[in-house]
Design a protein around this nucleic acid. Sequence first.
DNA 1: CGTCGCTGACTGACCGTTCAGTCAGGACCG
DNA 2: CGGTCCTGACTGAACGGTCAGTCAGCGACG
Lengths: 201, 201
Amino acid sequence: MTSEETHDEIMQATYDALCDRGYVGLTMADIADRAGKSKSLLHYHYDTKADLLVSFIEHLLSDFEERIAVTEDAPPEERLLSFVEWFVIDPDEDDRAAFHLALLELRAQGAFNEAFSEQLRASDELLRGTVESILREGIESGAFRDVDVEATAAWIIATVDGARTRQITLRTDWYTDAVCHHLLDVLETWLFVSNDDRGGH
Amino acid sequence: MTSEETHDEIMQATYDALCDRGYVGLTMADIADRAGKSKSLLHYHYDTKADLLVSFIEHLLSDFEERIAVTEDAPPEERLLSFVEWFVIDPDEDDRAAFHLALLELRAQGAFNEAFSEQLRASDELLRGTVESILREGIESGAFRDVDVEATAAWIIATVDGARTRQITLRTDWYTDAVCHHLLDVLETWLFVSNDDRGGH
DNA sequence: CGTCGCTGACTGACCGTTCAGTCAGGACCG
DNA sequence: CGGTCCTGACTGAACGGTCAGTCAGCGACG
């Protein structure tokens, strides 16, 4: 088996283990078992557990970059809507909640691990950049009011991320749904230029 | 020394240890050392580490209840403003960031520990209830538009909590400041009834 | 063609450390 | 004397990491 195939298997095993046990319960032995490999092999490919996890975050991030590139040609209102909607977690999406929970644990560890937080900041910039570009496009096309792009993007992301965090940590099933849709309501009156105003220019 | 005094000392030591090492790095020995007591004593007062932490969360919550009761007689706009402002973390408030980081780790563990998440849900309800009462008061007095109180409260809390989470985990110093003040801007146009509209009724 | 040398992927046994929890006992106090 | 508060020495399990060694494949060379 090539090194790359093994790498992919280990990443998948790490994902599974993380969903199942969470970050705190994550052990090298567990990952190895799920990959059908030995613990030593993990250390053969990655010096330490932390190295493996950094690699895992990179893996996630590249995955995420691919996924975020889609729906680039829709109108800005629609893009913003589907972006926000994207954060809603259905009650039945168990593994998604589990994964984001593990990710939250990992994010919290970023404060103690420079390599982690570097990766996390990169993902934050990617996320904010995406929303900023949607906002800029909307402002240019006249669909949105001329708001502070950076502040608005940070605000939107904080909101949807906060809703997700609370849904997951409080074990409720309604938080993301309620907050994201409420946010869209607010955006409609606060950000979107109504059709009346739009004609009269 | 009475049992109660010891309890308080242990809670304080737990707080200090949590700020210093985070939840993952938290050990019974560390707490005991900081309290100037033996590890065995902790087990004398609390059967397990988890029990101690549940007790700690209860302790926090009662603390929090006391603090939230203040400024009840200010006008609703002002109460809401100071509530949101309350979440801004200055760059120099190191221990506050450290504490909230540990709390975030603890919150993430709530998903694996029913006793934890019960406490956390109680604190969420307290928080939401506070904002809801501010909103209801403002709507009644005509200071706020007649919005959906539950959804708006959840949304505000998700926003400020999300900003805090990102500031802490990404190790930035601007997130809460930028988001909270932007939120206040939005609230001003979206929620507050302007003086013009207020007179003409 | 065969075999020799070498490498990359992989394993199992093992080690040192850390840590929650136990237990027998001691001091002080009413 | 009995109960409450407290200690130090200890145990067992879990876990990250190490290390010597196996094995399949492959290129080079006679």
